[in-house]
Design a protein around this nucleic acid. Structure first.
Lengths: 200, 200, 200, 200
DNA sequence: CATGAATGAGGCTTCATTCAT
DNA sequence: AATGAATGAAGCCTCATTCAT
């Protein structure tokens, strides 16, 4: 019983991973349900025993990606280190995901940012889908300001200074135009972000 | 004769504008050719007298968007002002586009950045499609460094510090989560960018 | 222009007729849209330029069938003859339809009576879909009673004595169990109905 | 052993009843096998331990419904009462079924009469599936004629005068358009039928 | 006998694109 | 250049049925 339920959850997770892989490579629309099924090694029809629709699957995938990043950032937020170190850790951590599991961030960029029509029905706006992660960014900034490390700024302004460059690097990695491994860029990016946000 | 050709070019432009409008709102795939036709006030079939395919139309649209931004930045680059002022002008100019012609930047974000499969066939990578604009960003950075205003940095690192936040704000505007008019954020964003990139 | 619209209406009518043909023979579900398309000589996709869905097509077909019968009965109601003659005319007229256009009545029996789930969404109940026809039956009975020819009776009771036997013969014709041509049964059926309903 | 077989038969009967319930409500095609399984409280797969196919199940259901009505009519035929009383009893008995077990007659009307394609494969024509019942109607008419109560008539004509109105009322009940309880209509219907068929 | 995950065939529908007018 | 009916290729999804457990 319990074992079967566990097996079912695992199978569901397999599908999500496969979907992320293909969605990030080919986009939401160009990825066909049978493609995903093949990637997991099951029949297309069976996908529908796990997810209500292709859209539903994409939403689950987004939620998973958001969680991974949110958890990563939450851990860092809970560490007892300086704000500057937190930013360094986060940029490095994010880039590690970009390197080791590029589909995750690519998927985020390609499917979430770009196919709003897919998500806007469930989430009031796509933004909310990622709320967990966004809140964590908020904590990073608030704590930094409280500690006197960061300049007090409008949230969206500060948010864009962190996530903008990271998103940009996700894109550049996907375009294959970087000369070095992404991770190599982490220290410089972190420093730039810190310079932009730190108390002047 | 010449007049007819001119008329044809104008009609073509009308279609491009309509396409940008709809693509940016609904995405590339969810926008149907008949929708675009209706928006311009012509029949679906007639679109094909102007563009080889829906993809072709999207590429023309991207080229147009890239040009608008590239021209804007080129003008600024040619002005005889400090690097800091150039960044301020550029951020403000970009945000003006976001406000007055939000479809343009939205289209860029949603269709170009995210639907690689649509563009990668013509451009070797989608990145090159925007090369004209990217080169201009390069000039901004190089001149700034030559003038001793900016720290010498890896191009992609610096690029991401400029275009990342701007892209992020394009997204936030589209999501309707900003409390103030976009333009109001320009000075702060410009300052942050300058702090990140300036000589230390 | 006008001609095109007319042509389009005619084409639409062709599709309705083909649909009635196939629906009556194979039932609503067993008839596939491509089958109908083939019967009219067009592609399956093109059907959707005329009807929103297979269901929509079935509803149009039902409306057409109802109208044919309602018109027939209305004409008879307007004639200056005895109630008995009206019933004779109606039974004969109905059986002529059963003979010459068996699909029409069969379709009515098979699709309308049996596939309520298809129609109940648009019509509050399937009954209302045929209201025009039912009203005409009401007029036949009311006028007959007013003329002193028919016994005053509950509408549904009288209605069932007319349409019940006719529906039953529609079914028997479809089952191919009648020894004689349907029309031959008309006088006897008409007499039976008259005996059941006439003033005692 | 015997007990198990009995249990199995009972389980089979449960399934038939559930099927009649759902088929009559939603039609043959719109009812899914898992729906039936859920209604009985078993798994979809298990249905196939009792019936070869969905079609097979529908045929069993029809046979059951036919038997119920045939038995009822046979009993009445065997009673020592006048033909008129027999007709009264039958109409009343039929309407009692319509009231107490509406699914049975509804199922008959919706699935059997209208989904010929489902039954015609096993029975030469769907008509024969109900032969037991139909024969009993024949006995009612023959005995009535032999007793000098009914006019000698073509079987199908007389049959349609009985079963037509009853079928019609089954439909009207299903459509929820009757003001009174069905049973209340029995005497009038019976009288009408008798007037139509009795010796003149 | 019972389960329910899995299959696979096939249906409805959409849509870019073509083409006769 | 303009129309819009027509095509045909796919895609999503459903569901009866099977089968390993």
């Amino acid at each position: 019983m319990t074992k079967d339920i566990k097996a079912k959850e695992e199978r569901k997770f397999d599908i999500v991973l496969a979907a992320i892989r293909l969605f990030s490579r080919d986009g939401f629309y160009a990825t066909r349900v049978p493609d995903i099924a093949k990637e997991v090694g099951m029949s297309a029809g069976n996908i529908y025993n796990y997810f209500k629709s292709k859209e539903d699957l994409a939403k689950c995938a987004i939620r998973y990606c958001t969680n991974v990043l949110a958890n990563k950032l939450r851990e860092i937020n809970n560490m007892d280190i300086t704000t500057r170190e937190k930013i360094e850790h986060f940029v490095k951590g994010y880039f590690e995901v970009v390197e080791k599991f590029p589909e995750l961030t690519e998927f985020f960029l390609r499917v979430y940012l770009a196919n709003r029509e897919v998500f806007s029905k469930r989430c009031d706006n796509g933004y909310e889908c990622a709320s967990e992660f966004i809140e964590e960014v908020g904590r990073l900034l608030d704590n930094g300001a409280a500690a006197g490390d960061l300049q007090k700024q409008d949230f969206h302004v500060a948010f864009s200074m962190i996530m903008g460059p990271l998103g940009c690097f996700t894109f550049l990695t996907g375009e294959n135009v970087l000369e070095k491994n992404v991770i190599k860029y982490a220290p410089d990016i972190a420093e730039n972000i810190y310079l932009a946000l730190s108390k002047r």
